[in-house]
Computed example of a mutant assay.
Amino acid sequence: MHVRTLAESDIPLPPIVVHRPTMCVIDGRHRLRAAHLRGEERVSVTFFDGDERDAFVLSVLANTHRGLPLSDADRRAAVRRIVLTHAHWSDGAIAAVTGLSSKTIAGIRACATTELPELHSRIGRDGRTRPLSTAAGREAARLYLEDNPDASLREVARVAGIAPGTVRDVRARLRRGDDPIPPKVRAGEQRGTRSPAVAAEMADVEVTSSLRVLRSDPVLRFSEHGRWLLRALGEGMSNADWEEAAAAVPGHLAGLVVGLARENSRRWAEFAEALDAGQPAVLLRHAGC
């Protein structure tokens, strides 16, 4: 019925979304069938170049917010798959994709704990990585507060990578002379201690997960400037990639590369601060406007 309604409409059909590596339709199966009923030989297509896991997420997102809605059973099945393929995503981030509540996501995740990898952080719906254990962030906040006792909560939170509320608790503990890391948090951190090599692998996973969040957003993926941003953020660059890139730099050019890398780092830091603070004038300066 839905397909026939689309076919009988005079309104041009929006482009379908196709996963380029497999040529499977991610979004627009009904539009494709409607075009066939109309006798059309060609349809407009937007290609998605991510992997199959991200393609699945995009298809769920499309069906959640457009077209015929998924049944509750289909949504729950999608959640069970996403919590395994995107374990670093927060319950809220998965809820935004599937249309179920965060509480429901948490319940489904709890049933899949034996299949999930051990994680130390999750990525929220805003794309930010937040630690499941805040021990390291609390320690960083302690050190920063010792040198900058009058720093604002927001400033310390940005430096330490923790929430302002956590900084407030750290500051209060320090004023009382207590350990800034609660016993339960410290115990959990000790149980989760990893070797430097494993920590590096975890960093790779977090970067990859963050990029998957960005790649799955059509606003970035299907715009010229969005694709440029993904490339500029080092899409697909693992620790091993960086090591190989460093090894490829000739000794006589190392100084130039070091200088450019540090200057780019400074610009990215300023860009991040401006974006976090919502300062469009600074962002326009970076864009060359």
Rank of each mutant, 00 (worst) to 15 (best):
V219N: 06
A140P: 02
P117E: 08
R80P: 00
P69K: 12
R215S: 05
R66D: 15
L145F: 07
S152Q: 09
M202I: 05
E146L: 11
V219D: 15
V97A: 06
A34H: 05
A7E: 12
A272Y: 02
E155G: 01
R215N: 09
R212N: 08
P164A: 03
R42M: 15
W89K: 12
P14H: 01
V167I: 05
V83I: 11
V198M: 13
E41M: 09
G67C: 04
T104I: 04
E139H: 03
D27H: 07
I11N: 13
L119D: 04
A247T: 12
R138G: 00
T64E: 06
R138N: 00
A200P: 02
D147E: 13
L233M: 06
R38A: 04
R81I: 00
A140G: 00
G251I: 02
L119N: 01
H286F: 15
E40Q: 15
V257L: 10
T134L: 06
H2G: 13
E201T: 12
V159T: 14
R186V: 01
R128Q: 11
S238I: 00
Y144G: 03
A281Q: 10
H19E: 07
A73V: 14
A254Q: 12
W89N: 08
D276C: 08
G188R: 15
N148K: 03
W228P: 02
L253I: 04
E40L: 14
A245R: 13
L6K: 02
A287T: 04
P21Y: 11
R109W: 03
G99E: 03
A163P: 01
L283H: 11
S210P: 02
A62C: 01
R33W: 14
A151L: 02
I181T: 13
Y144T: 12
L284D: 15
V60N: 06
A200W: 02
H120R: 10
R80Q: 15
A95F: 04
G251N: 10
S9E: 11
V156Q: 05
A245P: 01
P250A: 05
A269T: 12
D169S: 13
P180L: 08
R231N: 09
R122A: 07
I181N: 00
N264Q: 09
T113P: 02
V249G: 01
D91H: 10
R4D: 15
P183A: 03
V159N: 06
L220A: 00
A110W: 05
